[in-house]
Simulated assay, not measured.
Amino acid sequence: MSDDPGDASELTHTTTEGDAQMVDVGAKPDSARRAVARGTIRLRESTVAAIADDGIEKGNVLATARIGAIRAVKHTWETIPLCHQIPITNVETEFTLDDDHVTLTVTVETTGKTGCEMEALQGVTTGLNTVWDMTKAAEKDEDGQYPATEIEGVRVLEKEKTLDEN
């Protein structure tokens, strides 16, 4: 292997010929894994107030976004190329409403050979996209644009791994 960071032989998701491949995790021991991700959607204050009062025409925004986030966690392997399908053992979603934004924190747990941070990120982004979809009528301006609406700060806050002692 060369010291060139672009050398395909050093990349885990490519063959020595540069073809895409899924990483073989078969020899890795099972471990308990946990990841926490968070992101925020900025909205008009009136929209956040309507969410809090369950006053959005499409229905309960947070309940729908919670379902979307959990579903996205469970289907991450179907949307991210080369991502392993992992057994999800727990998903927690927490929404925090502030004057002009909604923050979503998603915690994912699994026991297996690879981490679950991509699942946590998928949960956050899909949950926040669901909030946007549910509130877009309230967020549009007179030209049909979304000048105040923005998803930001999506990131992994924590990632943990504990080896199984069995």
Rank of each mutant, 00 (worst) to 15 (best):
D99C: 01
E117H: 04
N90E: 14
T93C: 15
G123M: 14
A72D: 12
W132P: 05
E94Y: 02
Q85S: 14
I80D: 02
L128V: 06
F95C: 05
V73K: 01
T114L: 07
E117W: 05
R71C: 12
E119S: 09
T114H: 07
V91M: 00
G127V: 04
T110M: 13
L82E: 10
T110R: 08
T79V: 15
H101R: 09
G127R: 07
P81F: 11
M134E: 09
Q122P: 02
G123I: 13
Q85N: 14
K113D: 05
H75W: 08
M134P: 03
V106P: 11
L128H: 03
E119P: 09
T79A: 07
Q85I: 00
E119N: 05
T110H: 12
V73P: 06
T125G: 02
P81I: 12
T93Y: 04
D98H: 14
D133C: 07
I70N: 03
T107F: 02
A120Q: 06
Q85W: 04
P87K: 11
K113G: 02
E109V: 07
I80L: 08
T130G: 05
T76F: 11
K74R: 15
T89V: 02
T105D: 03
L121H: 04
T89R: 13
Q85E: 15
T96Q: 14
V124W: 04
M118N: 04
D99E: 15
W132R: 09
G123S: 11
P81Q: 12
T126M: 12
L97P: 05
E109K: 11
H101C: 10
